[in-house]
Amino acid sequence: MVPTNYYVILSAVLFGLGVFGFVFKRNIITIFMSIELMLNAVNLAFVAFSQALGKLDGQVFVLFVIVVAAAEAAVGLGIIILIARNRQSLNVERVDLLKL
């Protein structure tokens, strides 16, 4: 058996890396991917606790998170395509005006 702590530590590490990528990456697509990484880290913690407590609630929550991630990806990538079309750039530094 793998102690639950290990899973939680791994989850924290992944989450931290996700935050790091979110703050320091400049490409809007990669930033979006960092968000997905954070969601994945949270999922790992959910499943680990679900296993530790012997309850399935955590796994059900993971399914909800995945659904939200899918919806978010659809809308977010739509927005990214629009930004790329309007600004000719994917760099967030160049998308700093609220209007076109």
Binding site: M33, E36, A48, Q51, Q59, V62, L63, A70
Partner: peptide, 23 residues
């Protein structure tokens, strides 16, 4: 490894097969 096989399959099908393909 944790015995959450359904979540594992959904993880690959939805994350790997749909979301990341979209990316």
């Amino acid at each position: 490894l944790m015995g959450a096989e359904f979540v594992a399959a959904v993880q690959i099908i939805v994350y790997g097969g749909a979301i990341m393909v979209l990316f």
